[in-house]
Simulated scan of single mutants.
Amino acid sequence: MSTDFQNARVALGARLRELRAEAGLNGKDFAERLGWQRSKVSRLENGKQTATTDDLDAWASAAGVRSQAADLKSRLRGLESQQRSWRRQLAAGHRPVQDRYVVEYQRTATIRGYEATVIPGLFQTPDYARRLLVQNAELMRSPRDTEEAVHARMRRQEVLYEAGKLFRVLMWEGALHALVGPREVMAGQLDRLVGLIGMSTVELGIVPLGAPMALTPKHGFWIFDEERVIVETINTELQFDSPDDLALYLRVWDQLNEAAAYGPRAHRLIARARAQLQLREQPGSTV
């Protein structure tokens, strides 16, 4: 059993124990109220057994807090999804992860995203994506299925052309200047971004270097239909769906959005990055 799964299960058990204690009942009396064996109450509270949704409904009812059932079920869903280590996810290569993202994006109508260091996967060219996937496979020491993963990532981009979808994506300007690959790869990637400006399903905002900001740029994150947030760290993918977490990330996105440039202004920022590439190509340039 994965450590992240078990840690989340122990945390759920601690919350169950807390609700039982707040009801003023010991384990034996609580089990009798539920009509369960005492051992089941103990296993659930100590993270030794995974609760079912029916178990959680019964627990909330027995503790006199039916209103907590929804929170408990959210925690149960989070056992698998809140923390997913990349080492475990990439055990079979990048292709399965990309395929899962295809499904995630297909079932979502509105996505808000922010990236500080890299061009988002939705907007990547095959060459740019290939460079990133090779780098990540080397870092994580995962199987090399680069071409299959690139094809899956490109398939994910088909959602950009579906009516009824809206992708509100912010990028820190620094991501435009990070040389992920050779200059020709970066040039093609920047040209791809220009082509996205004006699409009916895409709102591309770029937060300029030096722009007055209410907060400093944070890590990247993605908000799916205002129902869940996905955050990727170096070793883990995190998912949050509590109202407080959603409200927090929406506030961060809104504040970054206030500093973002759109339309012609965004085009000029991309052109500036493109011009820097051309300067680097000139003989004797120190740029």
Rank of each mutant, 00 (worst) to 15 (best):
M1R: 09
A11T: 10
A11N: 08
G13Q: 03
L19E: 11
L25Y: 02
L25K: 02
N26Y: 06
N26A: 01
D29I: 08
E32Y: 04
L34D: 00
L34S: 00
K40Q: 07
V41Y: 00
L44I: 03
Q49C: 08
T50A: 04
A51L: 01
D57C: 08
W59M: 02
A60R: 08
R66Q: 15
Q68K: 15
A69I: 04
A70C: 06
L72I: 12
G78T: 08
G78N: 13
Q82E: 15
S85P: 12
S85A: 14
A91Q: 07
H94L: 12
R95H: 09
R95Q: 08
V97Q: 10
V102H: 06
V103T: 14
E104T: 02
R107E: 03
R107A: 03
T108G: 00
A109V: 08
A109T: 04
T110A: 10
I111M: 10
R112I: 01
P120D: 12
P120L: 10
L122K: 02
F123P: 02
Q124I: 14
Q124L: 14
T125D: 04
P126I: 07
D127N: 03
L132Q: 13
V134I: 15
N136R: 13
E138H: 13
R141F: 07
T146I: 15
V150F: 12
A152L: 10
V159D: 00
L160K: 14
L160W: 04
K165W: 13
H177P: 11
V180C: 07
V180Q: 14
G181D: 15
R183D: 08
E184Q: 14
M186I: 04
L190F: 09
R192T: 02
L193N: 11
L196P: 01
G198D: 02
M199K: 01
L204A: 06
A211T: 05
A214P: 06
T216N: 06
T216Y: 13
H219E: 02
W222D: 10
D225L: 01
E226S: 05
R228I: 09
V231H: 09
E232C: 13
T233M: 10
I234V: 13
Q239I: 08
P243H: 14
D244Y: 13
D245F: 01
Y249R: 11
N257P: 06
N257T: 07
A260S: 02
L269V: 01
I270L: 05
A271M: 11
R272P: 00
A275V: 12
L279P: 06
R280P: 09
Q282R: 13
G284H: 02
S285V: 07
T286R: 13
